[in-house]
Structure formats: structure tokens, C-alpha cells
């Protein structure tokens, strides 16, 4: 197989849903970065005022981050 055949074969393997999958994965990676920002922001917010619910809110932000990471893994594995 020469190089031109290889390129043609590779291009033929590209499907619409394959492209959608990788767009989705890239979008989710950006979302993970955003979830990290939220964790940082929650830390800043909880420092501003002491409150009983601060721990719960921090936990929520971390759960949100973990869900975002889990969704990236799911998207790569399932799609």
C-alpha cells in the first residue's frame, strides 16, 4: 500500500458520527477545565464567609468535576 492509498483509505473511514464524537470529546475536555475553575471559585467563595454549608458546596463542586471527567471517559469509550 502506497502513501496515497493509505490516505484515501483513512479518509474513507471517517464518518459523520466519528467527527461528532471527537468534537464532543474536545468540548467535554473544555468543560472539565471549566469544572476545575468552578472548584477554585468555590474555594474562594467559601473563604469569604464561614458557613455550615461550605463543606457541602465544596463537595458538590468536586462531584461536578468528577462527573465531567467520567463523561469524557464515557464519551471516548462508548461512542
Amino acid at each position: 500500500m502506497n502513501s496515497s492509498e493509505f490516505i484515501v483509505n483513512s479518509l474513507e473511514k471517517i464518518t459523520l458520527f466519528g467527527v461528532v464524537k471527537w468534537f464532543l470529546v474536545v468540548g467535554l475536555l473544555m468543560y472539565v477545565a471549566f469544572a476545575v475553575v468552578i472548584v477554585r471559585q468555590v474555594k474562594i467563595m467559601t473563604e469569604a464567609v464561614e458557613d455550615d454549608v461550605n463543606g457541602v458546596i465544596s463537595l458538590f463542586a468536586w462531584v461536578h468535576l468528577l462527573l465531567a471527567v467520567a463523561l469524557v471517559i464515557l464519551a471516548i469509550a462508548v461512542l
Binding site: F17, V20, K21, L24, G27, L28, Y31, F34, A35, I38, Q41, V42, M45, I57, F60, A61, H64, L67, A68, L71, L74, A75, V78, L79
Partner: peptide, 23 residues
């Protein structure tokens, strides 16, 4: 499978929006 992942992404974005507004 795309519908499933799409729904999960949508619900996660909804969760994030609600959390942000609450914060």
C-alpha cells in the same frame, strides 16, 4: 449511544448552571 451521551452532557450543563446561579 449519542443520544445517551448528549442527554448526560445536557444534564451536566444544567447542573453547572444551577450551581453557578446558586453560588
Amino acid at each position: 449511544k449519542f443520544v445517551l451521551v448528549g442527554k448526560l452532557v445536557w444534564y451536566l450543563v444544567t447542573l453547572m448552571y444551577a450551581m453557578e446561579r446558586f453560588l
